[in-house]
C-alpha cells in the first residue's frame, strides 16, 4: 500500500507537476524540432518514452549493483582481487559514461525498429531520431534515479518499481507536452504571426506560456501526498 501511494505520487509528479519539458526545461530540442505536426509529435513521444523507460531501467540496475559506493557486484569483484580489505569500492565517476552508453544503445534499438517498421516516420524524424541520444530529458531521468538511489540513505533508496514509474511517466509527460505543442503549432500555421517571430520565436513564446499554465500545478504533489499518507 505504501509502495502504491509512492508510485502514484511519482507518476503524477513526473508527468504533470514536474513535467520535464515545462518545469525543468529539459528535452527542448525535440520539443521544438519535431512539434510541427501532431502525428509526428506522437511518434516522437512514443520513441522518447520507450528510450527513457529502457534507459531508466538499465541505469537503475547499473547504479544499484555496480556504480554506487559499496554496490554489491563491484564489492564482490573487488574482494576477489584484493581480499582482506576495508576499502569501499566506488565507481560513481563512471556514472555519466555508463548512462550515455545505455541511452545510446536504447536509441539504436528504437532506430532499427522504426526504420524497419515505420519507414515513413523514420524519414520524417530525420536527424532527430538519433539525436534522442543527446536528449537531456533522458539523461535527466537517469540522474534523477541516480540521485534517489545513491544520494539518499539506504532505507529510502528507490527500488526498481519507483525507477521504472519515474521513467515511463516522465516519457508520457514529454509526450503530453510535445503533442499539445504540436496541436498549437498546427493552429499557428493559419495565424498571422509577425514575421520576425515566425518559427522558433513564436514556438518558444508558446512554450513559455505553456510553462506558465503548468505552474498552476505547483505543490499539487504535496496535497496529494497528504491525502495518500
Amino acid at each position: 500500500m505504501e509502495l502504491l501511494g509512492e508510485v502514484i505520487l511519482i507518476a503524477i509528479s513526473a508527468a504533470l507537476i514536474n513535467n520535464f519539458v515545462l518545469h525543468y526545461f529539459v528535452g527542448i530540442c525535440p520539443f521544438l524540432g519535431v512539434s510541427r505536426r501532431v502525428d509526428m509529435a506522437f511518434g516522437m513521444g512514443f520513441a522518447v518514452t520507450f528510450v527513457i523507460s529502457v534507459a531508466g531501467l538499465l541505469s537503475w540496475t547499473f547504479t544499484t549493483y555496480i556504480l554506487r559506493p559499496g554496490a554489491p557486484l563491484t564489492t564482490w569483484v573487488y574482494r576477489l582481487a584484493v581480499p582482506d580489505t576495508e576499502v569501499v569500492p566506488d565507481l560513481s565517476i563512471l556514472n555519466y559514461i555508463v548512462f550515455i552508453f545505455v541511452i545510446a544503445s536504447a536509441v539504436q534499438l528504437v532506430e532499427m525498429y522504426v526504420r524497419k517498421f515505420f519507414p515513413k516516420l523514420y524519414k520524417s524524424f530525420g536527424v532527430f531520431l538519433p539525436l534522442i541520444t543527446t536528449n537531456c530529458a533522458i539523461l535527466f531521468a537517469c540522474l534523477e534515479i541516480l540521485r534517489n538511489v545513491s544520494g539518499v540513505p539506504r532505507a529510502e533508496a528507490w527500488g526498481v518499481v519507483e525507477a521504472l514509474t519515474l521513467s515511463v511517466f516522465a516519457g508520457l509527460g514529454f509526450m503530453l507536452a510535445i503533442v499539445i505543442m504540436a496541436g498549437i503549432r498546427e493552429e499557428l500555421d493559419s495565424c498571422d504571426v509577425p514575421a520576425p517571430l515566425r518559427g522558433a520565436g513564436i514556438t518558444l513564446i508558446v512554450a513559455g506560456l505553456l510553462a506558465l499554465a503548468f505552474a498552476g500545478f505547483t505543490r499539487v504533489d504535496q496535497g496529494l501526498a497528504n491525502l495518500i499518507r
Binding site: I184, E187, L188, S190, C191, D192, V193, P194, L197, I202, I205, V206, L209, A213
Partner: peptide, 10 residues
C-alpha cells in the same frame, strides 16, 4: 504575437 484578435491561442 499570435496575429491579433481571432488568432490567439490563450
Amino acid at each position: 504575437v499570435f496575429g491579433g484578435l481571432g488568432h490567439n491561442i490563450f
